[in-house]
């Protein structure tokens, strides 16, 4: 048996979980093993149906009065107890924040190794995996040893694909035994950030500035262009390190990963740290004085020139076409 740890929000299967289950189903088929899923807080019927569509034949619906809020160690403890009964060959989760965290706890609780952010898996006595390092700019081939193989699946590395035919599904409730210690680290509060603005992660258009912006004030024209396009404004790590913009605006390996229709990168050199964060963009337009800058290798379109000249010209052109005078 292969077990997948499921994440869902308000009755909707998480996209990253769907990717993980797709890889899990292929692995299970290779091993001639069934695919099972662990769902925290009980499985809503609509989740169960989606899981069957992805080839899951057994659902462990975990029910416990104290699992109302996310508690990573408790999640791992539940999976550990299911493992003891079901004896799976492997346990998988999405390489999401929660997935990596819960699987790391499971590794710690069981003393088993855990491989994070895998993109390919070959079963065997040990599993041979390919996993993402350096934010995905380097791959590592590694062997996972141990009696049960623990791994997470890198986000967006596997296309989510339903099974040719849905699996016949059996749902069984599982009541874990949890101690205070398992629940001592849990979400005690949730704070919503009220914001009318489009977020970087979800924007259809992102305009960003790098070191070439020169100063905090240098973002003025970028804000203006973003305003005209309904875009979010981002920046490179050089900019947040200089204190010109808040870290929340940073696009990159240690910032936000974006996936807009078009990303307009102005005065951004294109260090690996940055490219990792913007490579999910459908199109990239780079505006840079240096035609040899690394960003040019990632870009589909380029304007060679000073962003302080080009960006105002773009704003003027957009206004002109909309029939608004400057």
């Amino acid at each position: 048996m292969i077990i997948g740890l499921v994440e869902h929000e308000q009755g909707k299967l998480n996209e990253r979980t769907a990717e993980m289950l797709t890889l899990g189903r292929k692995l299970a088929a290779q091993m001639g093993a069934p695919l099972a899923a662990v769902v925290m807080g009980g499985a809503a019927p609509e989740i169960a149906e989606r899981l069957a569509a992805f080839g899951v034949s057994t659902v462990y619906a975990v029910k416990h009065e104290r699992l109302g809020s996310y508690a990573p160690e408790a999640w791992a403890r539940c999976v550990e107890q299911i493992m003891a009964a079901a004896k799976p060959a492997a346990v998988m989760a999405a390489g999401s924040e929660r997935g990596n965290e819960a699987m790391a706890y499971l590794g710690a609780l069981t003393g088993l190794p855990m491989a994070a952010n895998c993109t390919e898996v070959q079963p065997g006595e040990s599993f041979l995996v390919t996993r993402q390092c350096w934010g995905g700019t380097l791959w590592e081939e590694a062997r996972i040893h141990g009696s049960v193989k623990l791994l997470t699946v890198a986000p967006l590395a596997v296309a989510a694909e339903e099974a040719p035919a849905p699996a016949a599904l059996s749902v069984s409730e599982f009541a874990p035994t949890l101690t205070d210690k398992d629940l001592r680290v849990r979400v005690v509060d949730r704070i919503e950030t009220a914001s009318g603005r489009v977020t970087l992660a979800e924007a259809r258009v992102v305009v960003s500035g790098g070191r070439g912006a020169g100063s905090a004030e240098g973002f003025g024209p970028l804000e203006e262009l973003a305003g005209l396009l309904g875009a979010a404004v981002g920046c490179s790590r050089a900019v947040t390190s200089a204190g010109w913009r808040p870290h929340a605006d940073q696009i990159g390996q240690t910032g936000t990963r974006i996936s807009p229709e078009i990303y307009i990168a102005c005065g951004v050199s294109g260090a690996t740290q940055h490219i990792v964060g913007c490579k999910g963009s459908k199109h990239i337009l780079a505006i840079n004085t240096d035609p040899e800058a690394p960003i040019m290798n990632a870009a589909d379109y380029a304007i060679v020139g000073d962003m302080h000249v080009v960006v105002p010209a773009l704003c003027a052109e957009i206004r002109k076409r909309r029939g608004v005078s400057d």
């Binding site: 380097l138 791959w139 590592e140 081939e141 062997r143 040893h145």
Partner: peptide, 10 residues
């Protein structure tokens, strides 16, 4: 128990 085999440049 997690053994690196090799790195690969994508």
């Amino acid at each position: 128990g997690l053994e690196k085999v090799r790195f690969k440049v994508p």
